[in-house]
C-alpha cells in the first residue's frame, strides 16, 4: 500500500440532509485496488481561510468499476462547510490511503456492524467487503432523528438493518446501544464507529460477552502519516498514533 498525494476530480457532490453530504471522487486511471475498509484520506481544504490543516475522512465507499471513492461528510465547521460547496469537476487534493483496516473474520461467524451518526461512514465499504467474502452482517445504525437517517438503501443491500433514533422518529427510540437486538441476537464479531461514549458502551458490551470487537477512532490529527504524534490514543501498548497504528483498534488494546 503506497500512500500518494493526488488531485482527484469531484464526480458528484450529493447533499443528503442539511448536515450531511457525500463527495464522490474520481481516481481516473489510478490503481485503487489496495484501499481497504477502515482506511481514511486527508483532504486539503482550499476555499476556507480559517482552515489550515487537512481534514481526515474515512473511506465511505469504493466503486472499483468506476474507479471512484466516496466520502460521507458531516458539516461540523468551516472546513467541512467549504467542502460542502464543491461542484462537479472541481479538484480536491487528497492524501490516501491512510491508516490500518478492519480485519476479516473467520468463516461462518455472525457479524454486527454498529455505527452512530457520521460513524456509519466506513461501515458501508466494510459491509461490501464482508459480503464479497461471503458474510451477511447485521447492521445497527443510530441517529439523532429521522432527518439524519442517511442512505439506508445502500446499507439494506449489505444485510438486515436495525435502526435507533434518539427521538424515536424511526426505529427503536433511544441510543443504538440500548437496541433490543443487542440482547436478542448473539454475535461473534462487532465492528463499530461513532461517538466515543457510544463506542465505549459497545466495547463494554463486547468485553462482557467476550466478543471480538474493533472500533474506528476519530482523533484530532495534523499530519495523518505518523510524523507529528498529535493524534495519539492511550493504549495498553502506550500512546499510539490513531493515523498509522489506527484508526481501527481492537478494544482489548484500549484502556476502556
Amino acid at each position: 500500500m503506497v500512500k500518494r498525494i493526488e488531485n482527484l476530480v469531484v464526480v458528484e457532490n450529493k447533499s443528503l440532509t442539511k448536515d450531511y453530504f457525500i463527495l464522490v471522487l474520481s481516481c481516473a486511471n489510478k490503481d485503487i485496488s489496495d484501499i481497504k475498509p477502515g482506511q481514511f484520506v486527508q483532504v486539503k481544504v482550499d476555499k476556507s481561510h480559517s482552515t489550515f490543516l487537512r481534514r481526515p475522512f474515512s473511506v465511505h465507499d469504493v466503486d472499483f468499476s468506476k474507479n471512484t471513492i466516496s466520502l460521507l461528510i458531516k458539516i461540523v465547521g468551516n472546513g467541512t462547510l467549504a467542502l460542502s460547496g464543491l461542484k462537479k469537476n472541481d479538484t480536491l487534493n487528497v492524501i490516501y490511503p491512510l491508516g490500518n483496516s478492519f480485519s476479516i473474520p473467520q468463516p461462518g461467524k455472525r457479524i454486527l456492524l454498529a455505527g452512530g451518526g457520521c460513524g456509519i461512514a466506513p461501515l458501508l465499504f466494510l459491509g461490501k467487503k464482508l459480503r464479497s467474502h461471503g458474510f451477511i452482517p447485521d447492521l445497527l445504525l443510530g441517529f439523532k432523528d429521522v432527518e439524519q437517517g442517511l442512505e439506508i438503501d445502500e446499507y439494506n443491500k449489505i444485510g438486515r438493518v436495525y435502526l435507533a433514533t434518539e427521538d424515536g422518529s424511526v426505529g427503536q427510540k433511544g441510543y443504538l446501544t440500548d437496541h433490543s437486538i443487542l440482547k436478542s441476537e448473539k454475535y461473534d464479531y462487532v465492528y463499530s464507529c461513532g461517538p466515543e461514549p457510544m463506542l465505549k458502551n459497545i466495547a463494554r458490551y463486547c468485553k462482557d460477552r467476550k466478543i471480538f470487537c474493533e472500533v474506528s477512532l476519530e482523533n484530532l490529527m495534523a499530519c495523518g502519516i505518523g510524523a507529528c504524534l498529535c493524534c495519539v490514543v492511550d493504549t495498553v501498548k502506550g500512546n499510539l498514533c490513531t493515523c498509522t497504528e489506527g484508526p481501527v483498534f481492537n478494544i482489548n488494546d484500549l484502556k476502556w
Binding site: T51, L220, C230, C231, V232, D234
Partner: peptide, 23 residues
C-alpha cells in the same frame, strides 16, 4: 517518554498549537 495526554494539538488561525511533549 510517553509525551503529554491527548489532546495535544489544536488548529489556530494560520497555524497550530502542539504539546506533544517529546514522545
Amino acid at each position: 517518554r510517553e509525551g503529554n495526554p491527548y489532546p495535544r494539538m489544536v488548529e489556530t488561525p494560520s497555524g497550530m498549537l502542539n504539546s506533544v511533549g517529546l514522545q
